[in-house]
């Protein structure tokens, strides 16, 4: 059996992921996070906080909630069940940082926690900053 034949065989016997079910699950939980943040936003508005500040507070509350859930040890079980529904929103970003911090704290504050805290979130930060820079340049060019 040559390599090409084997690769075809591997393709045949590798179980397919249930993409539709996963997408639906992610859609529903992602939407639930959206609804939750609107609720938080409206509660904040009712305390006479302006829209801009309420926005930031909403994000911070979501980050706090997911980080605490990670620290208490049950967020990872939710993530493995609903997958991208919790990974894509800001909750996933916070979770990735908290879980790395928890994992590496025993390797020392500098060599462990400090060096590895952005292990998963680093790419999000780097490419987030790069793409926002490019978009800013585009915007400047449009308005010149």
């Amino acid at each position: 059996m040559n390599i090409e034949e084997y690769k075809l065989l591997v393709k045949k016997y590798t179980p397919k992921e249930d993409r539709i079910k996963n997408a639906l699950m992610a859609f529903i939980t992602g939407a639930a996070i959206g609804i939750l943040s609107i609720l938080i936003f409206q509660i904040l508005q009712s305390y006479n906080i302006n829209d801009k500040d309420a926005n930031i507070w909403t994000i911070m509350i979501l980050i706090l909630m997911s980080s605490v859930a990670t620290g208490l040890g049950f967020f990872d079980e939710w993530v493995s069940k609903v997958r991208c529904g919790l990974i894509i929103p800001i909750t996933g970003f916070a979770h990735s940082i908290t879980s790395s911090a928890l994992d590496y704290k025993k390797d020392g504050l500098i060599t462990g926690l400090g060096a590895n805290v952005f292990k998963l979130a680093g790419s999000v930060l780097l490419y987030g900053i790069v793409s926002s820079f490019i978009l800013a340049v585009v915007e400047v060019l449009i308005h010149v």
């Binding site: 079980e77 993530v79 908290t98």
Partner: peptide, 17 residues
Amino acid sequence: ERQFRYPIEYGAPKIKR
């Protein structure tokens, strides 16, 4: 898990294969 894959508390979803 920590050495080969993701941080433990991250709970990276397990796929069928």
